Amino acid sequence: MTGQAPLEIDTSKPHPARMYDWFLGGKDNYPVDEELGKQLLALDPRVPTLARVNRAFMHRATRWLARNGVRQFLDIGTGIPTEPNLHQVAQQVAPDARVVYCDNDPIVLAHAAALLRSTPEGVTEYLQADARDPAAILDKAGKVLDFDRPVALSLVALLHFVSDEDGAYELVERLMAVLAPGSYLMISHASGEFDEEKAATATEMYRRRGLTMALRGREEIARFFDGLELVEPGVSMVPDWKPELGEAVPVEGDQRLPGYAGVARKP
């Protein structure tokens, strides 16, 4: 296993990976995660559905990428394992696929064994690093992946936790600059443009707990794909990205879930 030694788990404030786990019905979270999760749920009952919809998008996009010849995946902001994981989807299509997972939450490291069950032909690896440190990620991932060959970079439900001030756009540019032509970028991202008042309230909830929430609009999310060739249907609402490639997630009430997704190719 690549990466640093396990860190002490901080249960004094929520962590996005553990909150995501709570929204998905998992048990690898703490009261502080559940507390904020319940507050967000009271603000917008669709949040758990959005988490499931993001997960389903990852499955569809990974399946599409593997069917279109991608054999290497770098998944940053992995989160706590929830089957099927990215490597299981990719290796079901291409048993020789190589997958590197990256997250900064020690609880994900504790579950890394679940992420490392690869096909005999393929490889899965886990490294512990912060998304805001692309140099460290690339250095460690480069020991497993061949950056002279195409890689799919997965940033699913991650970038809304990285502010412009923390260099969200520069982070994506830095990562994609190293990847070979023919590589892909896959992103899903929560948006605040459908209800600005709710978005401002959610952002303030995170801020009070020392967390970042950057709910961008569609045009701001599309900026992450600058210089890349978008795959149809372009930057779309998350459930609308190639729904035929996976099972639909039931959505009650307002169908306009506050998020966008897209996949693009590096020319």
Rank of each mutant, 00 (worst) to 15 (best):
L115H: 02
D146V: 06
P181Y: 13
A94W: 00
P95L: 03
E193G: 06
A5W: 04
D21H: 09
G3D: 14
A222V: 01
R52T: 01
P239L: 08
T62Y: 08
G79A: 09
M1Y: 13
Y206L: 01
E247Y: 06
K242C: 11
E196P: 07
E219A: 14
E8S: 14
A200W: 05
V235M: 05
E165V: 08
D21W: 09
K13G: 07
A90P: 02
T82A: 15
V99G: 02
E173G: 01
P84Y: 05
E125Q: 15
G25A: 09
R209D: 12
R52C: 00
Y101W: 12
L74P: 11
L158T: 03
L159F: 10
A56V: 01
A264D: 04
L74M: 09
Y126L: 08
K198G: 05
G259I: 02
V32G: 13
L50G: 07
V99Y: 04
L245P: 10
G37W: 05
R60A: 01
R209Y: 10
R207L: 11
T212R: 13
A17V: 10
E34M: 12
G246F: 05
F224D: 02
L153C: 10
G167D: 09
L145N: 02
E252Q: 12
G192L: 09
L115S: 03
E229A: 14
W241Q: 06
A177P: 03
A264E: 00
E165S: 09
V151L: 06
Q4N: 08
L179R: 06
I137V: 14
V108N: 04
R207D: 04
T119H: 12
A190H: 03
V89P: 01
M1C: 10
A177F: 03
R71H: 08
A202Q: 06
P233R: 08
M58A: 14
Q91N: 02
A135K: 14
M176W: 01
G3Q: 13
S183K: 06
K13D: 00
L159G: 06
T78V: 03
S191A: 10
S191G: 07
N104D: 12
E165I: 02
P233I: 09
V235C: 06
G142W: 15
R52Y: 00
P233A: 09
R67A: 07
G227W: 14
V151G: 03
D28E: 15
A112H: 04
E170H: 12
D10A: 11
S236A: 15
I107V: 13
L43H: 05
G227K: 08
F161A: 01
A112D: 00
T2R: 11
H160W: 09
A136N: 06
L155S: 04
Y169D: 13
T203W: 06
T2A: 07
E229R: 13
F225P: 06
V231G: 04
D33Q: 10
R18G: 04
L36S: 08
K266R: 14
Q4R: 14
H160C: 04
K266Y: 11
P120C: 01
E247W: 05
V178R: 15
R208T: 13
H111G: 01
A261L: 08
A135D: 14
S188N: 15
G37R: 09
K242Y: 00
Y30Q: 10
A248D: 15
A180V: 05
A110T: 07
P6A: 12
V263N: 01
E121M: 04
Y20E: 11
G210A: 07
L36H: 09
V263Y: 02
Q72H: 09
E244F: 10
L127P: 00
F23V: 05
A214G: 00
L155R: 03
